[in-house]
Simulated assay, not measured.
Amino acid sequence: MIGILIALQINNVNSLNQQRKAEKEYLLSLRTEFNTNIKEIDEFLSMNNSQISTLENMLELFDNNIRDIVSLILLKKYKTKH
């Protein structure tokens, strides 16, 4: 009878150890995935910031060109009136 109880206890300990090992592997996998996701997000943010900067530069050029065109139109109108 005592032998059976000892065997059951050893079996429970072994089962717990296997569960802990599986849990550690799962958590390590989650940490690796998490770190990979952070790197990818950082890359996307960097790429997006670069695109935003490029678009802001384009808009500034566009705005400058529009201002120049409006200025030329106004100047022509002024010259034709005077």
Rank of each mutant, 00 (worst) to 15 (best):
residue 1 M to W: 02
residue 3 G to C: 06
residue 3 G to D: 05
residue 3 G to T: 03
residue 3 G to I: 04
residue 3 G to Y: 02
residue 4 I to F: 07
residue 4 I to H: 08
residue 4 I to D: 11
residue 6 I to V: 11
residue 6 I to Y: 00
residue 6 I to L: 12
residue 6 I to H: 00
residue 6 I to M: 01
residue 6 I to G: 00
residue 6 I to R: 05
residue 7 A to K: 09
residue 7 A to W: 12
residue 7 A to C: 09
residue 8 L to H: 05
residue 9 Q to F: 07
residue 9 Q to W: 12
residue 9 Q to D: 06
residue 10 I to S: 00
residue 12 N to P: 00
residue 14 N to Y: 07
residue 15 S to W: 08
residue 15 S to Q: 14
residue 16 L to E: 15
residue 16 L to T: 15
residue 18 Q to G: 07
residue 19 Q to I: 09
residue 19 Q to M: 10
residue 20 R to I: 04
residue 21 K to Q: 07
residue 21 K to D: 05
residue 24 K to R: 15
residue 24 K to A: 13
residue 24 K to C: 05
residue 25 E to R: 01
residue 25 E to I: 00
residue 25 E to G: 04
residue 27 L to Y: 11
residue 27 L to N: 09
residue 28 L to V: 14
residue 29 S to C: 10
residue 30 L to C: 02
residue 30 L to Q: 07
residue 30 L to M: 07
residue 31 R to E: 08
residue 33 E to Y: 05
residue 34 F to E: 09
residue 34 F to V: 03
residue 36 T to H: 08
residue 37 N to H: 08
residue 37 N to G: 09
residue 38 I to P: 00
residue 39 K to D: 08
residue 39 K to W: 01
residue 40 E to L: 07
residue 40 E to R: 05
residue 40 E to N: 11
residue 41 I to E: 04
residue 41 I to L: 13
residue 41 I to S: 07
residue 41 I to N: 07
residue 42 D to K: 13
residue 42 D to L: 13
residue 42 D to N: 15
residue 42 D to S: 14
residue 43 E to Y: 01
residue 43 E to N: 10
residue 43 E to W: 01
residue 43 E to V: 04
residue 44 F to M: 13
residue 45 L to K: 13
residue 45 L to D: 12
residue 45 L to W: 02
residue 45 L to C: 09
residue 46 S to P: 00
residue 46 S to D: 06
residue 46 S to L: 03
residue 46 S to M: 07
residue 47 M to C: 14
residue 47 M to I: 01
residue 48 N to F: 13
residue 48 N to G: 02
residue 49 N to D: 14
residue 50 S to T: 15
residue 50 S to G: 14
residue 50 S to K: 15
residue 51 Q to W: 01
residue 51 Q to R: 13
residue 52 I to F: 05
residue 52 I to N: 02
residue 53 S to M: 14
residue 53 S to F: 05
residue 54 T to V: 09
residue 55 L to R: 03
residue 55 L to I: 05
residue 56 E to Y: 01
residue 57 N to T: 01
residue 57 N to W: 00
residue 58 M to K: 14
residue 58 M to G: 00
residue 59 L to W: 03
residue 61 L to G: 08
residue 61 L to V: 03
residue 61 L to A: 10
residue 61 L to I: 08
residue 62 F to K: 11
residue 63 D to E: 12
residue 64 N to L: 11
residue 64 N to W: 01
residue 66 I to R: 03
residue 66 I to H: 00
residue 67 R to N: 11
residue 68 D to F: 04
residue 68 D to M: 06
residue 69 I to G: 03
residue 70 V to T: 10
residue 71 S to I: 01
residue 72 L to V: 04
residue 73 I to M: 13
residue 73 I to P: 02
residue 75 L to A: 14
residue 75 L to V: 01
residue 76 K to V: 08
residue 76 K to C: 11
residue 77 K to G: 10
residue 77 K to W: 12
residue 77 K to M: 15
residue 78 Y to W: 08
residue 79 K to T: 08
residue 80 T to Q: 15
residue 81 K to Q: 11
residue 82 H to Y: 11
